[in-house]
């Protein structure tokens, strides 16, 4: 009983702020406060009318897509190597790869800024953000893919070779389809992390701000706040859709492998 009360309280605590987003996004007043005014779509219209926001969103999506692809590729290589081969210092190396997972982002941001600007003397640009995001997303990708690769029975790969496939075609025909749910998870999660990452993007972004950096800039103008709420509403909807897709693929992967469902997102 008390557990149920706790669970409900926790859910309210967790989701109340998110429910406030659409509430004020459709509220016809520049002031974020109760009581609510009449229903309006003008904040969404305002978003539509702001080219600087479109540029920021495009920039963020571009960065997030590249980040997702690169960190997943790196993750596949690392997880594959860890699952298949024994090499000296394997554990320390795998441990070191995972360290960015726990480093404070502000430290990573500052040190990357120093490296990029002072040591390498590169121009800050979209690409420096991509590089930094790959750095922080790769550990997540490895963690997800490690699970996928380690769960795979190695005799399946041996069976494919035994049946005449080369190591490469074995990877394509057997390994890849079996770890595909992991790959999709990794793509979606690194995409999401990159899309809403602020601190590192703030340090490393060049002339074109990313979406979080742009939103942060908007906060200085209180009359823009309802538009930010509208943007937030769209992002929440998008996240739910992405999560549902990820979950669908995860379940399909499980069903194909004939495994029992253990946990998951939804």
């Amino acid at each position: 009983m008390s557990l149920r009360v706790y669970a409900i309280a926790y859910l309210i605590f967790l989701y109340l702020p998110i429910f406030l987003l659409p509430l004020f996004a459709f509220n016809d007043s520049t002031i974020i406060a109760f009581p609510l005014d009449s229903l309006t779509f003008r904040w969404f219209y305002e978003l539509w009318e702001t080219p600087a926001l479109h540029a920021a969103v495009q920039n963020s999506i571009f960065i997030a897509v590249l980040t997702a692809i690169f960190s997943t590729l790196l993750g596949i290589c690392a997880a594959r190597a860890a699952a298949k081969y024994e090499f000296p210092l394997k554990r320390p190396i795998m441990g070191l790869i995972m360290v960015p997972l726990v480093l404070p982002e502000i430290i990573v941001g500052v040190s990357l800024l120093v490296v990029v600007v002072q040591l390498l003397e590169w121009q800050l640009s979209t690409w420096t953000v991509v590089g930094a995001h790959v750095l922080i997303c790769t550990p997540f990708s490895i963690a997800i893919l490690n699970g996928a690769f380690q769960n795979m029975d190695t005799s399946l790969e041996e069976a494919a070779q035994d049946l005449g496939e080369t190591p490469f075609s074995t990877f394509r025909l057997v390994t890849l389809p079996l770890v595909m749910p992991g790959i999709i998870s990794s793509l979606l999660i690194s995409f999401t992390i990159s899309l809403d990452e602020f601190i590192i993007a703030f340090f490393l972004t060049g002339a074109d701000p990313t979406m979080p950096v742009y939103i942060w800039g908007l906060l200085r103008f209180p009359q823009k706040l309802p538009a930010v709420m509208a943007l937030g509403t769209i992002l929440v909807l998008l996240s739910i859709i992405l999560l549902t897709i990820a979950e669908y693929y995860r379940r399909r992967g499980l069903a194909r492998a004939g495994l029992k469902d253990k946990g998951g997102f939804l």
Binding site: S155, E158, P177
Partner: peptide
Amino acid sequence: PPNKRPTNMVFQSYAIFPHLNVAENVAFG
């Protein structure tokens, strides 16, 4: 290498490809 040898193996775990159906498994080689 194993894929060039005139031998085939039945594994202890059977190693049936879980993403393929029975016919696709048999047709694999």
